[in-house]
Nucleic acid binder design. Sequence first.
DNA 1: GTTGAAATTCAACGAACGTTCAACTAAATT
DNA 2: AATTTAGTTGAACGTTCGTTGAATTTCAAC
Lengths: 249, 249
Amino acid sequence: MQKKKTSTRTVTRARAAKVAPGTGSRSAATRERILDAAEKLFAERGYHGVSIRDVTGAADVDVALVSYHFGSKQGLLEAVFLRRAADLNDERLALLDAVLASGGRRAPRLEDLIDAFTRPLLDRSTRGSPGWKSYFALIAEINNSPEFGGVLMTRFFDPVVQRFIEAIRRALPQCDDRDLYWAYHFLSGALTLTFAETGRIDKLSGGVCRSSDLASVHERLVPYCAAGFRALCVSGQARARARAKRGRA
Amino acid sequence: MQKKKTSTRTVTRARAAKVAPGTGSRSAATRERILDAAEKLFAERGYHGVSIRDVTGAADVDVALVSYHFGSKQGLLEAVFLRRAADLNDERLALLDAVLASGGRRAPRLEDLIDAFTRPLLDRSTRGSPGWKSYFALIAEINNSPEFGGVLMTRFFDPVVQRFIEAIRRALPQCDDRDLYWAYHFLSGALTLTFAETGRIDKLSGGVCRSSDLASVHERLVPYCAAGFRALCVSGQARARARAKRGRA
DNA sequence: GTTGAAATTCAACGAACGTTCAACTAAATT
DNA sequence: AATTTAGTTGAACGTTCGTTGAATTTCAAC
């Protein structure tokens, strides 16, 4: 199964392609076209549900360019993921710093922290380029997928998440770490499903709720999760007291 | 694109296959084998990430049997979905009725309702056959997928969900319907991500939390979501008061 | 034991899959 | 103007895809 071709000159080019060929100016445009199309299609039908030809067809570009620019289909997925992650993480951290700075030495307000974590998604989905909606739908699928969930999400987002959890720990200093992490986990599930906009709640509610009305959802997501964090905090202390009592008995 | 074959005798058999061929006893066993393998693989790699040959290979069965028993690959997915849905829904409704009955005329406790909705998942994932874990992972992917999320979930689960929301409405009679539905939406996201067991929280928490320790998660999921429901309820009333005040002004 | 339907097997269909290669174009370097 | 290089193209590679038709086996009813 090893490559037998004693390839001659072309090897250097192929190797170079694997690294990252795009520095020229006219390549950047086609790279973006491919990323836009891939983002949309991956979000709609999932990674395996989309062929490279689907992507290049939608981008009106030759098939071979995916391998050339991104090395492989998997490389394309990671590039899609990476493209918007930096921007998203940057604003999240900026908002987090602003919340922490405005409070001075005082503990930050829990609602402000959750808002700083989630508002960048709201802003981009409602006012950003339409690609952001696809991006968030893709993240929702990835986040819930055993195949990619534990890998891609961790790599691209966990450093920022860690900083938020540290801040939340300051807001709820008496809270057990396990309760803190699980509370974040629930927030993560609610958040990704919300910004995936699958439309299921529209049918379920008979039109009372609209997935696309993200401002209304976000307005509710923050108090919902803040209350959840606090409840876990107190119920965790109750559990600890019960354990201590059992220990003494 | 229409079938030109003036097919003679075999048509009756083929038609019958589309409906549901399995009544014989030895067919039931192979059907189950196929469903088990499909459930596991769909959960691991998603619908499009699994080929029919992957499934029949794992089930040690001929390729053609999927078309014979389930009509098509999509038919197989729906059969996987349907197989455990009835059992799950039945116990959910039984627990719901028990909660409502035990309370008599009084409003049910919110925590009891959320527990009735979620505990059947906990029981089956921890004590049921291992196929249940795959099933819940598959549901998580479907729930967050634009392609299937709004269709399959609605068809198989929404009737039961509606009954729960009615019961929750009795527990929070002053709560606005929009707040109620959105609160359920957040619960749904947290629930599906939890039982998907993607393992992401294990890495994020550095081992403090374990996805596989579902009893600990469930113990926290209930108070988290109950507090969320109540918080939405009161913040919804605050919003209503604010709207009324603006109206008078 | 024969019959007949249900279940299974085998082989193959055309289409689509991800990837690669050599040839070609266009821009930058000398 | 000549040469190099990044970018693009079209074609093809071998493989796998979902599905199908016909032949074969299994098993219960007669």
